[in-house]
Design a binder for these strands. Structure first.
Length: 491
RNA sequence: CGGGGCGUAGCGUAGUCCGGUUAUCGCGCCUGCUUUGGGAGCAGGAGGUCGCAAGUUCGAAUCUUGCCGCCCCGACCA
């Protein structure tokens, strides 16, 4: 019920936390900054993971796994990379505990100090490139296209469920190529994989773009990204793909002999998406009654709730539900029959709405007599009576329609919230009163970007791919500019 | 690390300013009966180191000091 979910206009953060907690996705944990992903939330992640994993394999990638721990010396090799991650690393210094000699409990055994500290990976570039050095000798070993599903740790000052946790689950692809062009094509291809996933599975429209130098990944020459818009008008980076040039190849000495028998450094990419996508999903689609999940990745697509008086009615309903279930399952629809007798129908309706299950079917004695079921869709809250004949096929098209409507709605909102601004006054007014992306001219310098950020808290989210070129003057400095870029306040 | 708020049963809370019987209420839980088309009703029941520690006092959830933890805002960031 809406009284239990904080209205988002009043306090968006509380609203978001309530959605995650009451939607059954995750909980706070005993460890500061970390969260427990509950079965329902994890099923959502697994579903997303499976779709992405298939896309990676369809584009020629293989999965592998690299160690959790990274020797400190590895991390210090690439200068920008250190700069970017040093401030947020968990460090392992010892390998043994001992009984506390001065009291109860255990203490770290000072004799077990590691000669070289190990860093819990904040990302795996360094350990992976150190490994690739041994795997790559010839142009015939290229391209090397590898992905890993893993957890990483970034010791952030402040955390938020799914959006920024100290430990998070993600996927990181790391590829090596013979030429720069090939590596760039790879980075662009993977960006498109992410964009396709966001739009067609998560029903989340995204802007494909490239980051400004200041917002680039630490150690990259170019960072491609997909940027999504949340319902509070803030932007969220939903995925990134980096063209790393030869930076890592050079510091880890990854070379290959080309067809002309000459030694060359390889060209690299890395790309990743994380459990943050779940945060994006929650903030993009939910309403005051709870989560709204797009059918294609909802762990549960349909829930069936029986309404009955007495065992006799229940039996008849059970029989009919079994038919419906088997139809739906045959069509590949994820369906649950909730006939638990400790909660009444109204309670279940509210519960599954909070969890964002796209379609609910209620079946009672009255419906059986009329050969119908009550079908309710989560996205629009519409309810209608539907014939039991051909119900399976009907639900299939309904799920498709919900998927499409959710995307259309999010896209309409997003499109309405890309607004051009031509003066700083306009820019700031739009940020404060409307939010969303603001399309404005920028002189291309990091100094200007920094000044705008200090003054407005807005950053350049991206320079859209295939951005129309347009002569203009920088919104802050008045210097000439050739194109508009997208600014926003962001998560 | 700065600013704000908070910590009382599984969850949410009243009581704290101004110390005083057996710590309040709701949800949930257990038992029984009645119920079931939008978070059921009645009756009975179980459940508490009032975040931790020290202090003041005849007496502390309440006052003092110290510590711990959480949430929100800021800096940092997927």
């Amino acid at each position: 019920m809406s009284k239990e979910i904080t209205a988002r206009s009043e306090d968006y953060s509380q609203w978001y936390n309530d959605l995650v907690l009451k939607g059954g996705l995750a909980d706070y944990s005993a460890v500061r900054g970390c969260m427990v992903i509950k079965p329902y939330g994890f099923a959502l992640w697994e579903g997303m993971r499976d779709v992405l994993d298939k896309k990676f394999k369809d584009t020629g990638h293989q999965n592998a796994y690299f160690p959790l721990f990274i020797p400190k010396s590895f991390l210090s090799k690439e200068e920008d990379h250190v700069e970017g991650f040093a401030k947020e690393c968990a460090v392992v210094t010892h390998h043994r505990l001992m009984k506390n000699p001065d009291g109860p409990g255990v203490v770290v055994d000072p004799a077990a100090k590691l000669e070289e500290e190990l860093i819990v990976r904040p990302t795996s570039e360094t350990i992976i490139w150190n490994t690739y050095k041994d795997w790559i000798k010839s142009y015939r070993d290229l391209p090397l296209l590898i992905n890993q599903w893993a957890n990483v740790v970034r010791w952030e000052m402040r955390t938020r469920l799914f959006l920024r946790t100290a430990e998070f689950l993600w996927q990181e692809g790391h590829t090596a190529h013979a030429t720069a062009d090939e590596a760039i094509a790879e980075a662009e291809q993977m960006l498109e994989v992410y964009a396709d996933f966001a739009e067609n599975y998560m029903a989340l429209p995204v802007v494909r773009g490239v980051k400004s130098p200041a917002e680039r990944f630490a150690g990259a020459l170019d960072t491609y990204c997909i940027e999504a818009l949340m319902q509070d008008g803030k932007a969220l980076q939903a995925g990134t793909s980096h063209f790393l040039g030869q930076n890592f190849a050079k510091v880890f000495d990854v070379t290959f002999t080309n067809k002309e028998n000459k030694l060359e450094h390889v060209w690299a990419t890395s790309w990743g998406v994380s459990t943050r996508l779940i945060g994006a999903l929650v903030m993009a689609h939910s309403d005051d009654d709870g989560l709204v999940l797009p059918p294609r990745i909802a762990p549960l697509q349909v829930v069936i709730v029986p309404i009955y008086k007495g065992a006799e009615q229940k039996e008849k309903i059970d029989a009919k539900v079994n038919e419906i279930m088997s139809d739906l399952k045959k069509a590949g629809i994820r369906v649950k029959y909730d006939d638990a007798d400790n909660n009444r129908p109204g309670w279940k309706f509210a519960e599954y709405e909070m969890k964002g299950v796209p379609v609910r079917i209620a079946l009672g004695a009255r419906d059986l007599e009329n050969n119908v079921a009550e079908v309710a869709r989560r996205d629009s809250k519409e309810k209608f009576s539907q014939s039991l004949d051909g119900l399976g096929a009907y639900i299939g098209t309904l799920l498709d329609d919900i998927q499409q409507q959710m995307y259309n709605k999010a896209k309409a909102y997003r499109d309405e919230h890309i607004t051009p601004a031509n003066t700083m006054e306009e820019f700031e007014k739009l940020l404060d009163e409307k939010g969303g992306f603001i399309s404005a001219h920028w002189d291309g310098t990091t100094e200007t970007e920094e000044k705008i950020k200090e003054r407005t808290k807005a950053t350049i989210r991206c320079i859209p791919l295939n951005n129309p070129q347009e002569a203009g003057t920088c919104i802050l400095t008045g210097k000439p500019s050739t194109q508009r870029v997208l600014f926003a306040r962001a998560y």
